[in-house]
Computed example of a mutant assay.
Amino acid sequence: MTYRILFVCLGNICRSPTAEAVTRAKAKALGIDLTLDSAGTEGWHQGKPPYGPMSDVAKAAGYDMSTLRARQVTPADRSEFDLIIAMDAQNQRDLAHLEVPVARFTDYAPHTGAEYVPDPYYTRDFEGALALIETCADGLLTTLADKPR
């Protein structure tokens, strides 16, 4: 079974595309078959590439986000994906209209004590966001690897 996962943040230019790229690379290395996408709860940046500083930090760590483009969540996403993962509580609340369960990415890394992935667009901590996203991706992939197919 191929799991279909959608990562969601506010504008789909920092956290969710990074989560998509990191999880894709880590899943490929582990031989886990996933279909991944990312989207924003808002459509301000539709069609635009990930935010330059976030993209640069990800690229330096070996994650390519050059082909990703921002899009907004749509009602069709509720049936297109097996799992929808929000970066923070506000994103999670903003997805309530989909009427499907939405996990928080940090649920997959409870040992970090983080309740959400801080938005580096505002905090300017791109390295910290990437490190937390990598940890959450590891936890997610461990969870998926343990599920029967």
Rank of each mutant, 00 (worst) to 15 (best):
D88I: 00
D138I: 04
R124C: 08
D119V: 08
D94Q: 00
P75M: 06
H111L: 14
R78S: 15
A145V: 07
F126P: 01
E115S: 11
G128W: 05
E127L: 06
C136L: 05
T135E: 15
P110M: 12
D125N: 14
A96L: 05
I85Y: 10
R124G: 01
E127S: 12
D88S: 02
K147Y: 15
Y116G: 02
D94R: 00
T123E: 12
H97F: 10
D125E: 14
E115Q: 09
E134P: 02
A103D: 15
A114Q: 08
P120E: 04
I133H: 01
P118D: 08
L98A: 04
P110T: 13
V117G: 05
L140S: 03
D125W: 07
T106I: 02
L132A: 07
L98M: 09
Q92Y: 01
D125K: 11
A145Y: 11
E134A: 07
R93P: 00
T123K: 11
R93D: 03
Y116H: 09
G128K: 07
F81V: 10
A109L: 05
D138E: 15
D77E: 12
A76R: 13
A137H: 04
Q92E: 10
M87H: 03
T135S: 09
A114E: 04
A129V: 08
L144E: 00
E127F: 04
Q92A: 10
E115C: 01
C136H: 03
Y116P: 00
D94W: 00
E115K: 12
P118Q: 05
D94M: 00
A114I: 02
D138G: 07
L141Q: 06
D82E: 11
R93Q: 12
I84F: 03
F126V: 01
E80C: 13
T112P: 11
F126D: 01
Y108M: 08
D125V: 12
H111P: 00
A131V: 11
A86H: 11
I84G: 08
S79L: 11
A145N: 14
L98E: 02
Y121Q: 01
E127P: 06
Y122H: 07
L132T: 05
A103V: 05
A89I: 03
